[in-house]
Amino acid sequence: MCTYTTIKDVIDGSAKGAGGEWFHVSDITVYFDHPVHAMAEHTLNIDFTDPSRGPSARVAVELTADSAVRLVEAIQAALAAVPVEMRV
């Protein structure tokens, strides 16, 4: 199905997009829905974007649910491994 579920937030960072150019990303959209490319019926999809630069300023990932959980755990482990004062 199209789950329609969509979660948005603002972020501050950079991503490397199509054409190999880095760009600042200001927004994320997270949803569990049909992928464009991944061979699964549904995937956890994340769009890293800068809406001010137009629709193509987007880095997209499509992860199986299990992969998405692993990613979350890996991010949390990486952040937990460094002193809080380094997170600036």
Binding site: Y4, T6, T49, P51, P55
Partner: peptide, 20 residues
């Protein structure tokens, strides 16, 4: 309207982010 000329997947991402 949201994404004239954009690739279909990029346009769909914009439309979704805008609420569909």
């Amino acid at each position: 309207r949201e994404a004239p000329g954009a690739s279909p997947d990029d346009a769909a991402a914009v439309a979704r982010a805008n609420g569909g």
